[in-house]
Design a protein around this nucleic acid. Structure first.
Lengths: 243, 243
DNA sequence: CGACAAGTTGACGCACGTCAAGGCCGGTGG
DNA sequence: CCACCGGCCTTGACGTGCGTCAACTTGTCG
């Protein structure tokens, strides 16, 4: 049921996260009510349902998405280790999106009911949750700008940089390369492009020696030119909280 | 400096907002450090700057938007009375979007510094802020779906319904009509469409007797068919907090 | 009545979507 | 070991929804 004690949480060591006090750690440990191992492909939160839990990603990649009734799918954002999932479902009446595991994931389970205790007794953690929500909002806004205003080539450049930055901040990269459990269909559904056009645009980036993406390994060949193309300024690199 | 005392706040009476305790009201009144009257067209929060304040909208409409360096603009969302503006700038390092008044607005000013006090002493209000952030996120996600996957006609239908629902929940409508201080350029920049195509698509909706939009007055002529076209299920109508 | 912002309309072009046909590769079973 | 299958990727041909350009109209405010 619980393999990872909060006190020995493998993520705590990652530099980007702010340090917790002993007391906070104790509370979180108590707050945590178990772990969920989700295999790649599992949808563990579903659009339209109200979840009794909030999760923190311990390891693995996932993505949040929405469907239109006729099947059109929009990927909203990805979820990386240290991030909170399902807050909407806990705070509002229900989730209006689904979350699926891209790779095998381990999630820490927190009960919705206990969230209130956290707010009441650990204002710093409450503030942290707000911080995480604000950051999520910021990412969504940049995505909206991407889908609304960037061209196909700009979108691809943006997406590649976006996921690279996020992976890198967690040490999930190997130099300029990293493993990406995405299919081109995922990419297309993230960027509001068709599968075919996504494929052809990726080919352009490859031909221009900007990236290489073979067998789930993505390599950034020319970071600066990609930034230029994407017209993107990067994510802030502040220390971040994690519950 | 302060025309509207929190104790006599005109918004408190609006049914959709949850009631505050006497104590909460006192705190908010103390938290509030003044009012800002922004004329239509004023940009009162700017992309890239870090603001020392958070605002609550007392009256009027605004919109949040982002620019790409070459001038392409994406409208992210609108802001209505009772909503919080500038939380990102208060919690994270800086705002990554701007906010402009569409009509004349009155905003309550809160100091960023005091936000922490709120978290420490009024967990319920802290929770409310999270609630508002989660709702904002939900709206953004629906917008992303719209821009990514809906056709021009669907987008227009969606937008019309979206702003109508929000205005209506605040009693800002007159039956099926309401005043909309938007130009077609705003609409285009919200939906990721060109101005010309927006105009032509609006004409289609008008010709099909779905809406009428003349001189800043928008009328919903056929609510049901619009919903059908938009493939949208509406915003939740829960009681909402407001700081 | 002039000036300027906003809305309107038609003509034309292109970025991206759709369709369709293979190709590659890892997995499974005989 | 090969045969087959089902995902996923790739590529060309062709179609179209939406963008761009440009000119005109309408409304508004001095």
């Amino acid at each position: 049921m619980r393999q990872y004690e909060c006190e020995r949480c493998p993520l705590r060591g990652v530099e980007i996260f702010r340090k917790f006090t002993k007391e906070e750690l104790n509370f979180v440990s108590d707050f945590k009510s178990g772990e969920l191992a989700a295999e790649a492909g599992t949808t563990f939160l579903t659009q339209g349902s109200s979840s009794a839990y909030v999760y923190t990603v311990l390891s693995g990649w996932g993505y949040r998405y929405k469907y239109l009734e006729d099947g059109r799918r929009q990927v909203l954002n990805f979820v990386f280790p240290g991030e909170l999932v399902g807050l909407q479902g806990a705070v509002l009446k229900e989730m209006e999106h689904s979350v699926q595991a891209l790779s095998d994931m381990i999630l820490c389970i927190f009960e919705r009911k206990k969230l209130w205790e956290l707010y009441k007794n650990y204002p710093m953690l409450a503030y942290d949750i707000t911080w995480l929500a604000a950051r999520e909002e910021q990412m969504l806004e940049e995505h909206l700008l991407t889908v609304g205003k960037r061209t196909a080539k700009e979108r691809l450049a943006y997406l590649v940089l976006h996921i690279f930055e996020r992976a890198k901040s967690l040490g999930m990269n190997k130099g300029k390369s990293f493993d990406v459990p995405l299919t081109q269909q995922h990419v297309a559904d993230t960027l509001g492009l068709s599968l075919v056009h996504t494929n052809k645009t990726l080919r352009v980036l490859y031909n221009q020696e900007l990236i290489s993406w073979k067998k789930k390994t993505l390599t950034i060949l020319d970071y600066d030119r990609l930034c230029d193309i994407a017209k993107w300024e990067g994510l802030g690199a502040q220390k971040r909280p994690f519950i």
